[in-house]
Write a protein that binds this DNA or RNA. Sequence first.
DNA 1: GGCTGCTCTGGAACGCCGTTCCAGAGTGGT
DNA 2: ACCACTCTGGAACGGCGTTCCAGAGCAGCC
Lengths: 232, 232
Amino acid sequence: MATRTTRRPERREEPLSRERVVESAIELLDTAGESGLTFRALAARLATGPGAIYWHVTGKDELLSAATEAVVSRTTASGTADPTPQEAIRALALGVFDAIEAHPWVGAQLASAPARSPMLRVFEHIGRQVQTLGVPHTAQFTAASALLSYILGVAGQNAANARGCPPNTNRTEFLATVSAAWADLDPDEYAFTRDVADQLRVHDDRAEFLAGIDLILTGITTHREPTDPAPS
Amino acid sequence: MATRTTRRPERREEPLSRERVVESAIELLDTAGESGLTFRALAARLATGPGAIYWHVTGKDELLSAATEAVVSRTTASGTADPTPQEAIRALALGVFDAIEAHPWVGAQLASAPARSPMLRVFEHIGRQVQTLGVPHTAQFTAASALLSYILGVAGQNAANARGCPPNTNRTEFLATVSAAWADLDPDEYAFTRDVADQLRVHDDRAEFLAGIDLILTGITTHREPTDPAPS
DNA sequence: GGCTGCTCTGGAACGCCGTTCCAGAGTGGT
DNA sequence: ACCACTCTGGAACGGCGTTCCAGAGCAGCC
């Protein structure tokens, strides 16, 4: 009140920008979850009104896409030289996996809009390693697509699990609860599920994810005819 | 106005019920998409008010779950005796795949809430076939989870694609458009994607999906490389 | 028949959402 | 001094999920 317009080095300490909007959106998504990202909450965090945000972003869809793009692109950026294509694919997949574990909302976003830009880069990198693996040209699309679909599937599941209990229960307790629920299922209708309830309780998400990748990689590198001896 | 309470055989021609609510919700989702399911629209279709629906359903989450459950359970119901476990798994996966193609909203729903009931039954059936395949006990959970994750991943992608262009373009035209977009990408940054743009244009979703299933099945049934050191 | 208690209805209202609108502040060019 | 342009932010709109509640219909008991 005392000073009205004097003593203002810039219009505000930091002017609005698309970058700042997206960054704040990511923080909001990380702290308050997917439902926490609101134009009003975002405006409050940026000390402005909802209308101002629309000058830098066309709408919520673009905002979510930009936030996802920003997070995923960081994982793709770190290009380490891996000795084998298999390890390169594992590293690539783990990058996406870790990004989703750190930001569960990315999983839900990717699972429901994969054709967009961020995952296309992952697809490209996977495809190159598939080529390096010596996969026949006609099977390369299938192989890369299968790997991508699997990654996106795990992404969605992890996001769903993280949404189930974001703040409170630690992972061990959560797994114990679900495992106990599985063990209490009908023995006739859910014989298998009951049988693996123990494995669910002690399993490691990252290891299971990688094991699935390896399963697909084995399928890709194994010739269709089972008479082929194990390649190395 | 003429007759007030006379001439009414029942309170209404058909009383509200949870079954009728869920069924109408499915119809609404199929015709108007995920965003078309609204308590007001649902109330209009049922010739009632929004409040009445809450007597039969606790909220929108349960409504969506019930609708998904209803659609998925129909696919699991048809139990045909398949000669081999592989074919049984393929049939199971195709059932889910077809259900999602017929109701794209199911894909999005499954991809973002897989731990719930409907997919647990699929998991159970897959797991039994995995057991029949002779997979070692310690690897059964991994194998079934990988298959389920892959199915859910494809589910999400199909749902996203269907959401991109629900009514208008036929599939061939859509694929041609995306394929052309891929072919126009930067040759350095997207060499592989450009290379498989042709395969994208002519590919068959069902066949690709099954090919991915077969990749994982091959990985499951192929013995690990004997020289492979235990990877953590 | 009345009366009561229960199930079920459906319209009104609440608060929040994404989005649009627009008056106007700030700023650089002439 | 003026203008044109970028950018701001508060108000407002329609629609959403959800809640609330007066009351309709329908047993069952007096």
